[in-house]
Design a protein around this nucleic acid. Structure first.
Lengths: 329, 329
DNA sequence: TTGTATGCGTTATCAG
DNA sequence: CTGATAACGCATACAA
């Protein structure tokens, strides 16, 4: 393998000069810069990122922490979109992304987590969907040993940023549209999980709407499960005018149940996954751009690693209606 | 950061001794091993994998090369399953997985690819779904600079292994079951892509079946696209008795089209993705265990990196029928 | 079985 | 603006 040393020799300069060229230092004459670049070209030199990391003590590695199948198994769209968004942006910023699943670390103590990430030379964490119960993760953040970006968890400090849509507002809006368009009075709300950050925020949106419209809302917890939403629907839907769900998966479960019951009720979901197109009937939902969110999260962790201080970022959402033919074209 | 040097000092031994303990060398006395481990424990030492990689010239990094949305955008289940399988197994084997998408490298020449992977210190590649047209990738394999495991591409050499199900047999079986159960004579086969390895193998299975049953099969290329399968179905299904598809996505497109046409034909798919449960009607399909395949691929690349020579691995498949309630429970 | 010494390919400091 | 050289943390051949 050709190293910086060979390049230096070939170009007739010192190793340190080559390094300066490689890292775009300002104080190198145009002449030597060219000599060096020519040598690099001729030799087909590839800088060794491992050696660079060891020397500079900067690995440029970030872990993308994902919660797979803790919600519902049927669809992998959301984590996949996070992965795609994160990896593509990371490549542009010259960062390495190590994908990690909650299941891989859920048995670990804080100390073990710290060791695990340190042994991998990870400097930054992007955590998707942390819940209140993930105490080890909370503690991990508080060690201050890593730069952290939280997707869908509302915590910020010097080296922690948060990024998410306004769940409260989004739930309010999509529910309002669904309810008013059909003049519904008796609302069934299928909520997410107890103690989930986004679940509570979305619930809050429903409460605000209820107050504004003077409705009482009948709420049941569906745990983001399609099956539970189905069962709740089978049990209560007959006496309700509309079903508002805290997630698309639950909306699909509800809609399929309605179809089996052979009755119609307007249903709304939340997230905007393409599976919504397969539920059989059009539904309202909140479209989140997961790819973009992950991309911005990588941006943010990069900035944190460069010394910027943590902040909260609210990204926009969109209200849409989804139907089969839109999804496949 | 506490280093091996601190551990050595604390334990009263040489650095090399600590290193030997860390790497489970045999020739270390039980006594010193304990001393060292105690010191590690007390100091909370975490080996620096970057330094280890630099020194040993072994990074333990493999790239997982995925083809996202070149087929059909609607579903991310297959790549996600590959990712999950690969990452979990890699963690057990102490390897790092870098996820890479075809789109990130498709414009690159072989040389650029080599540089890209070398600069990342990647030793092994797991490539999912390479097609015949990916000439740069073929050349990359031939450079011999990386250990490669191919999922669903039938090429093997000293440092290249292949792993896949028997697509020909699987297509033969699922089609036979679908056709015979319904006594069909006029068969519409919606094939995958031209020049795709698996597409041709599956087609081969159809040919064998046609010969055996004395049928002529009417074939159209659907490019693995749900939409194209839909259109083909709308156009030809009326005069056919069964629709055999080379992928689930196309089967879903076909089935949805049949429902819109208000006619029924038995349809079979291929892959066993959970979206099949949402098509509205039960279908036959071939279930591939993508997670397991990826897991084995990581195993295999690990072995290649340890000096084993390339081989072909055929993994089992399963014939199943999928329906909504099975999928969500 | 243990220790010494050298090198891995960079970056960064400092002197020229 | 350029060059010598000491780290970075670990592995390993070799000596003891």
């Amino acid at each position: 393998m050709v190293s910086i040393r060979d390049v230096a020799k070939h170009a007739g300069v010192a190793i340190s000069t080559v390094s300066k060229v490689l890292n775009h230092y300002p104080n190198v004459s145009e002449e030597t810069r060219k000599k060096v670049n020519d040598a690099i070209e001729e030799l087909g030199f590839v800088p060794n990122s491992i050696a660079a990391a060891l020397s500079s003590k900067k690995s440029g590695r970030v872990a993308l922490l994902l919660d797979v199948n803790r919600h519902v198994q049927t669809v992998d769209e959301i984590p996949m979109q996070y992965i795609v968004g994160a990896i593509n942006r990371a490549k542009e910023l010259n960062l390495d992304v190590i994908t990690v699943f909650f299941t891989m670390i859920q048995e670990m103590s804080v100390e073990e987590m710290v060791r695990y990430f340190q042994s991998q030379s990870i400097e930054g964490l992007v955590i998707c969907g942390m819940s209140k119960q993930d105490i080890a993760l909370h503690k991990l953040i508080h060690t201050g040993k890593f730069k952290v970006v939280l997707i869908d968890a509302p915590y910020v400090n010097a080296n922690t940023s948060a990024i998410h849509i306004d769940h409260t507002k989004a739930q309010y809006e999509v529910a309002k549209e669904t309810i008013l368009a059909n003049k519904c009075r008796r609302i069934l709300y299928i909520a997410g999980k107890k103690n989930g950050y986004v679940s509570e925020e979305r619930m809050q949106g429903m409460n605000e709407l209820a107050k504004e419209l003077g409705l009482t809302i009948f709420t049941r917890v569906g745990n983001f499960s399609e099956l539970q939403a189905r069962e709740i629907t089978l049990k209560y839907a007959r006496k309700k005018d509309a079903i508002i769900c805290a997630s698309d998966m639950m909306a699909i479960g509800a809609m399929k149940a309605l179809i089996d019951m052979d009755i119609f009720r307007p249903v709304s979901g939340f997230d905007g996954i393409s599976l919504m197109g397969y539920a059989g009937k059009q539904m309202h939902t909140v479209k989140q751009n997961f790819k973009d969110i992950a991309s911005r999260a990588i941006d943010e962790v990069d900035k944190l690693m460069k010394g910027q201080t943590g902040q909260e970022i609210i990204v926009p959402h969109e209200l849409i209606r989804m139907e089969y033919l839109d999804v496949i074209s």
